[in-house]
Design a protein around this nucleic acid. Structure first.
Lengths: 180, 180
DNA sequence: GTCTATACTAAGATAGAC
DNA sequence: GTCTATCTTAGTATAGAC
């Protein structure tokens, strides 16, 4: 637990990268091993099966989610702003883990789907006290989903995801519409 | 063009169903043929390759999209309400086609990603005249994405997608916040 | 237009050397 | 702990009968 082997994380990073860039179908053991710079056999020492790889990724997601919920609760701008502002951050380890899990879920992994549903529940609980009513909570969560799907899952598509000033304007609009 | 062969559509329906229910990884030629009630060889007569299957689905999506944009423009409640109210309709042929294309896109199909981006552009053009500003347009589109991803891609997850009265409340909130 | 049979390729997994 | 070699199964595609 305290200092996990380097190679294991390298494999997980490669798995994540391929899922995000090329989708679940491309994330074969062979491709992951090649990208991680290990052999198939080496990979299978750390993760005994394709399923174990999925589980490893989901475990990592779980750990990062706990950290992020902590940060969200203590954000100076408040949980709602923090939540929306970070929904489109594809770069961070946490958002990469979410995107990768999303790919697995859409590829048909029931485990990944369940993990994402659980995460969503945790977000809802954190935000509920800071919005007006159920409709406002729905709006914030669904908007976050929209930001996420556009910046993470449909990456490489130019255009539609608001960032910078456009995102700020959107957040301001939502804050006004949902404030208790 | 006028009366396409029955079997072709049966195959496309089966392909769509498997994509939606089990994801892109499960949608093999074998599985699609079995579900459509034809042999692998029979399937490959209609669609010469795995790629041709993808293209067939995307062609169908394109045709259905044209119809829906027409309906949206002439909806009594206005394009914005129509758009949001139908974003979570998983049952219709159009939404099934979108969901299936979404699975392909997330599975790594560049073609599917491009088709969905084009569809999104068409929606934006239709809605733009009916909302206040860019932030309002972003909100409507992203919210629709959120509804779509939750009801279509994360199907079988209980809970978070607002329907019925909750959806009406959400639409009312958005209408107020975005009206020109 | 649809089937069976078969060939080819790639994916997942194991065994054993180093 | 990582590698090479190999096995098995599943996925894609072709040929040719019906």
């Amino acid at each position: 637990m305290s200092r996990p082997p380097r190679a294991r994380d390298k494999v997980l990073d490669a798995f994540e990268a391929i899922l995000i860039e090329d989708g679940a179908r491309a994330a074969t053991l062979d491709a992951v091993a090649r990208r991680a710079g290990v052999s198939k056999g080496g990979l299978l020492y750390h993760f005994g099966s394709r399923d174990a790889l999925d589980t490893g990724l989901l475990d990592r997601l779980h750990a990062l989610a706990a950290q992020d919920l902590e940060a969200m609760q203590t954000a100076p701008s408040g949980p709602v702003d923090y939540f929306l502002a970070t929904s489109g951050h594809v770069g961070s380890p946490f958002d990469r883990a979410i995107s990768a899990a999303g790919r697995l879920a859409h590829g048909g992994s029931a485990k990944a789907t369940a993990a994402l549903a659980e995460l969503r529940e945790a977000w809802a609980d954190a935000i509920r006290p800071h919005v007006r009513d159920q409709a406002a909570l729905d709006l914030v969560l669904l908007l976050s989903d929209g930001l996420y799907i556009n910046s993470a899952l449909l990456n490489d598509v130019p255009g539609p995801v608001p960032t910078g000033a456009a995102l700020d304007a959107l957040i301001a609009l939502v804050r006004t519409a949902t404030r208790p």
